[in-house]
Design a protein around this nucleic acid. Structure first.
Lengths: 241, 241
DNA sequence: GCAAAAGTGTTGCATCTACACCCATGC
DNA sequence: GCATGGGTGTAGATGCAACACTTTTGC
């Protein structure tokens, strides 16, 4: 089955997404395990159709893996070293290649197409992890969330891609107030603080943080949240757009 | 003469450079006028060879037009709308196309190659304008410096590309101390201030600016510069790396 | 001396940080 | 009452902007 060719997609150009989620005080990244006997991990990625913009392509790729539309998503850097070739997948696993060919998942032209050098546009996305049920792609054995501090070793420069994405996230978290994309609809200030601490990997002073966030004047105070714990109930907040 | 094909270059992917220079209190951009009867202007650009990284490609393109090596040069954004096709050049100027074909500058395959949709990686460069003698590319009638505030209307989204490059420059001028790349080897504080005023298009308070720049502790004070003017001679400074 | 521009110092305001204190809740 | 965590207030430090003043130069 001919999946890829230059009439449908732009050749040698891909998009890879660093999808950030947040849960249990940990910043997490969505990573695919490729369906091969070796343990090969990659960022969710895809290609650009001839008739769509790169932003639309990134949106499509994201929707395929997360089921979500209308997500915060932005390009942050291009990765274009000449060694960016999928050696790991398309050279060292001939048995699998054979299987794919036999099952008609791919044909020889697809393999050739995929084996070229790729320049990849890095996008990063911020999602509410509770709304996502990760979807496997064509080549995926599984798709899972990993703590950004304990990532598996991925193909090519994908680990470096996450590093750059994290730096971009840190740069803009405050500046553009994008962090709320990682939280559920309502949340307490402490939860915001714990998110910030996960992103920057450092503690913040509780009271000053509270003041700083409230002074931004972007949160709407709702009712109190009774946790059952032996202390004052914190207020819930909602992000005003 | 077959110039372009997918064995030498990556298809449908280009690099466009916003080359900033500074002279006479004006921030300038290097722009090509294309060798056609109409007035068509473009940013200097080029393609990526199969064996080189995108940074190397950008460096090569920059060197071709400016003759300079070791220049500050960084990617800043990818432009990937599906309408990014060279209509202006390759559809509305059939007479010229004929000429090129007859003279053997290009062949039909090259025209086809160039007529596709291109995704373009935007790079911006900062150069000492005095060291540059702009070189014409293959399709250029002329290459000149234009005040960033009075640019001609360029093809496709090239004006927008300059706008984004300028925003990136403004973001990093202070943060990364890259402004000194636009100045000659030695300069006065006033010259630095005038550069900043040109970039941000707003005035700065003289004495506070001086303090701020010197407090950065990156300048080395040299001898005084006697201008012949009826006032105190300013010191010259050199940027310490 | 005087005008012009360089260089330095000072004061006030806004912002950030550290510390202190009171409030609500369950046991 | 007491431990726990939420919420608010205040003093000190730091950084930036506005203003004032002195210095050097050529006429």
């Amino acid at each position: 089955m001919k999946l890829f060719d230059e009439h449908n997609f732009i050749q040698q150009l891909s998009i890879d997404c660093v999808i950030f989620g947040y849960k249990e005080k940990e910043l997490k990244v969505l990573i695919s395990k490729v369906k091969v006997e070796l343990d090969i991990y990659t960022l969710p990625g895809g290609f650009i159709k001839q008739e769509e913009s790169i932003d639309e392509a990134a949106k499509r790729i994201l929707e395929e893996r997360t089921g979500l539309k209308d997500i915060f998503l932005e390009q942050y850097r291009v990765f274009g070293e000449p060694f960016r070739i999928n050696h790991e997948i398309f050279e060292n696993i001939n048995s699998l290649k054979k299987e794919w060919l036999e099952q008609g998942v791919l044909d020889e032209n697809d393999i050739k197409w995929l084996s070229k050098r790729f320049v990849s546009i890095g996008y990063y996305a911020l999602v509410d992890i509770n709304k996502v049920s990760p979807q496997k792609g064509l080549f995926d054995e599984s798709v899972d969330w990993y703590n950004v501090k304990e990532l598996p070793s991925m193909i090519m420069d994908h680990n470096k891609m996450v590093q750059f994405a994290l730096e971009t996230l840190r740069l803009f978290l405050d500046q553009k107030l994008i962090g709320f994309n990682l939280l559920p609809e309502t949340f307490t200030i402490r939860e915001v603080q714990e998110l910030y601490e996960a992103v920057y990997d450092k503690p913040f002073a509780r009271n000053n943080f509270q003041k700083k966030i409230l002074d931004l004047d972007v949160l709407e105070r709702l009712e109190k949240k009774f946790t059952g714990a032996a202390n004052k109930a914190p207020y819930l907040y909602r992000f005003r757009n």
